[in-house]
Simulated assay, not measured.
Amino acid sequence: MQFRLLENKARPKWEISRWTYSPEKKRAIKETLGTFPCYYSMVSRDILDKCTTQEKAEVLEWWRVTSEAVNRERVRSQVTKLPVIFKDLETL
């Protein structure tokens, strides 16, 4: 499984894809399972429906770890901004 952040200034998206071997072409082929906006709270059902049981487990674990990291960063940035907010209030 491959997880890639597509940098789009308006709406960044996640792309989930997998590599499969094609005997006819005698090489690996990238199959994109789908994309979904970063602000979604969960991986798109359309993507999960295309996954095997093992791939679903991998995708859901990736999403859990990624969303935890995003939430940690969000909290960290809020905590570092709090002292500045209180300092700004002193000047009012």
Results as ranks from 00 to 15, higher is better:
D88W: 02
P83D: 09
L33Y: 06
P23D: 08
E7M: 07
P12S: 09
E61N: 14
R74K: 13
P83Y: 05
L6S: 10
T20D: 13
V59H: 03
N8H: 04
V75P: 00
L89C: 11
I29R: 04
T32W: 06
W19D: 10
T20Q: 11
T53A: 12
F3Y: 15
W14T: 07
R18S: 03
D46V: 08
P37I: 00
E24Y: 02
T20E: 15
D88Y: 01
L89P: 00
T80F: 02
W62K: 09
W62I: 08
I85D: 13
Y21I: 01
K30P: 00
K81T: 13
K87S: 07
R74C: 10
S22Y: 02
Q2P: 00
P23T: 12
L60M: 14
V70I: 02
V79T: 09
K26S: 06
S77M: 08
S22Q: 06
Y39C: 01
L48W: 11
Q78S: 12
P12L: 05
A57S: 09
S67K: 11
C38W: 02
K87F: 04
L6R: 13
C51F: 13
T80K: 04
F86T: 15
R27M: 15
E7Q: 12
V84C: 10
Y40H: 06
V65S: 07
E61T: 10
L89K: 09
T32L: 06
P12R: 06
S22R: 06
E7T: 12
L33N: 02
E73K: 15
M42E: 13
P23L: 05
I47T: 08
Y21E: 01
Q54E: 10
A10N: 14
C38S: 07
R72D: 12
K13L: 02
Q54V: 10
S41I: 05
E7G: 01
L89M: 13
A57T: 00
T20A: 14
